[in-house]
């Protein structure tokens, strides 16, 4: 009996995902250039660096548990980053209104994908691929293909530099005696919302059920369409939050931002151990996945490993982490 319990503890997905993280962490302690790993600042910066990706991964987790995929997150991030910069820097719209507008834009993009998937039964891969291309197009159209920065073009064609809006500095600041960045707090907030939805609310259960067996769920009276639209809509909302943070961090809205971010977000979810087949997984697994990738990147940069090798290693780690999680049957 004791043996059995021990076995189930080892086999639990959280333990397995943590295993990968701990291995990475130990590697970090071994290759500890300038004792960087003993300074909290290293960890704080790592958290700051993964926060935007993490927000995308939160939405991605919900979508993947519902049995779908969202390829449009990077593009929606770019679109909202551009819009936010445009509203606040160039148009001088009230910050609060600008934030609400951007959140609405992101959510609307997600809801559109979700509606096409749920109502017209377009495959999630295709529907969000279309949204990925479309949102990128809108971002370029809105921005005229230019980065929206503090250099504002005047009527006579000359450029005038304006001050960065206060909200950009607030998002970029560190709080609690410089120990954590506001972006990270926002990421944690996204995690909390995802957890509440997935575990504490009725629609979260619906999302798991749909991912596990859509037809059985429908025949059990589960509002399949509404739950799917909700998942994609929330993914879009988190993209908008990430877009606002991205704009604040770069002090500009770049229509080319967020390219291939969807792949990073999917990698984080998968490394955590959430199955791409849907129906299984959790937001805490995604947090572990986010930290695993974050620490990996940090360790490689501390040790001045070039981007070429970094990419190769990241690819290898994804495979290793997924293999580690496979339950032996």
């Amino acid at each position: 009996m004791k043996n059995g319990l021990k076995h189930s503890w080892i086999a639990s997905p959280v333990t397995r995902a943590l295993g990968a993280l701990i291995i990475i962490f130990v590697i970090g302690l071994i290759f500890n250039a300038d004792s960087a790993f003993f300074k909290w600042g290293t960890h704080r910066d790592m958290l700051r660096a993964v926060s935007v990706y993490g927000m995308l991964a939160c939405g991605m987790t919900m979508v993947i548990i519902a049995g779908g995929i969202d390829l449009s997150v990077g593009s929606i991030l770019a679109l909202t980053a551009v819009c936010f910069s445009l509203f606040t820097i160039h148009r001088g719209i009230n910050v609060f209104i600008a934030i609400v507008l951007c959140l609405c834009i992101g959510t609307l993009c997600g809801v559109c994908s979700g509606a096409f998937i749920a109502r017209f039964r377009i495959q999630p891969f295709i529907a969000t691929l279309a949204m990925m291309v479309f949102a990128r197009g809108v971002a370029k159209w809105v921005s005229g293909g230019q980065k929206i920065s503090t250099a504002v073009q005047q009527a006579d064609g000359s450029y005038k530099y304006v001050d960065v809006p206060e909200i950009f500095n607030i998002i970029n600041s560190k709080i609690l005696a410089n120990n954590i960045t506001v972006v990270t707090i926002i990421f944690l907030f996204c995690l909390l919302i995802s957890w509440l939805l997935l575990v504490k609310l009725r629609y979260g259960r619906y999302i798991y059920a749909i991912g596990g067996n859509e037809e059985a769920s429908r025949l059990s009276g589960v509002p399949v369409s509404r739950a799917k639209v909700l998942a994609y809509g929330l993914s879009g909302l988190f993209c908008a939050v990430a877009g606002i943070c991205q704009a604040a961090q770069e002090l500009q809205g770049d229509p080319e931002a967020g390219v291939a971010y969807e792949l990073s977000a999917i990698a984080m979810v998968v490394i955590g151990g959430t199955s791409l087949q849907g129906g299984r997984g959790s937001i805490w697994l995604t947090l572990i996945g986010v930290l695993t990738i974050g620490y990996l990147e940090k360790i490689l940069s501390i040790n001045a490993v070039g981007e070429d090798k970094r990419l190769m290693l990241t690819g290898a780690i994804i495979i290793a982490a997924v293999l580690l999680q496979r339950t032996k049957k």
Partner: peptide, 25 residues
């Protein structure tokens, strides 16, 4: 059934509103 879900969650799936007043499970 949703085979990947546990017994409790399958049991309540079709009548989940009863078990989540105001959306809270």
């Amino acid at each position: 059934l949703v085979l990947g879900m546990n017994i409790v969650h399958n049991t309540t799936l079709a009548a989940l509103k009863k078990f989540s007043p105001g959306h809270w499970l």
